[in-house]
């Protein structure tokens, strides 16, 4: 009981820590997607008046070394479609391989997976072969 209470406290502390990261990231504007930029009153063509680290600010004048990323419609469809496949695959594996132990209030691996995908596919195939109309016709 004491161990469970301690674990709940740890989980709450970690959730608070994660929330703190979101707030800190929002406060610092240290978004990973922000890009190094020139100050608003300068441009790549203007003479360099001081040598120092480039300022990282929200993108007003983004420094570009290469062509911008410009995905087409089908590029986005591909990217998000396969990403949904990845989510479904991982979720299915998780449900198949893990169970929630209500007494321990924790997840643990199943002793045996709920479904063995290859065996399941083989069973489906053998069933469809047996019930195939052409097979019936041949027997007749």
């Amino acid at each position: 009981m004491l161990a469970t209470a301690a674990r709940v406290l740890v989980v709450l502390a970690l959730l608070a820590g994660l929330f703190g990261l979101f707030v800190l990231d929002g406060a610092n504007h240290s978004s990973i997607h922000s890009s190094p930029t020139f100050p608003a009153d300068s441009s790549p063509d203007s003479p360099i008046v001081s040598a120092g680290p480039l300022e990282v600010t929200p993108p007003d004048h983004t420094l570009l070394r290469g062509p911008p990323i410009d995905p087409g419609y089908w590029d986005l469809v591909f990217m998000y479609a396969v990403s949904v496949v990845a989510l479904c695959w991982t979720l299915a594996r998780g449900v198949n391989r893990w169970r929630f132990d209500r007494q321990a209030l924790a997840f643990e691996p199943r002793e045996h997976p709920r479904v063995r995908p290859l065996a399941w596919i083989r069973t489906l195939l053998s069933r469809s072969t047996r019930s195939h109309p052409r097979a019936t016709w041949r027997r007749d």
Binding site: L21, L24, D25, S30, I32, H33, S35, P36, T62, L63, L64, R65, G66, P67, P68, I69
Partner: peptide, 12 residues
């Protein structure tokens, strides 16, 4: 990345 730099993945 057009900027030639990765994101700051090691943050914080």
């Amino acid at each position: 990345n057009p900027t030639g730099l990765s994101g700051s993945y090691l943050w914080p």
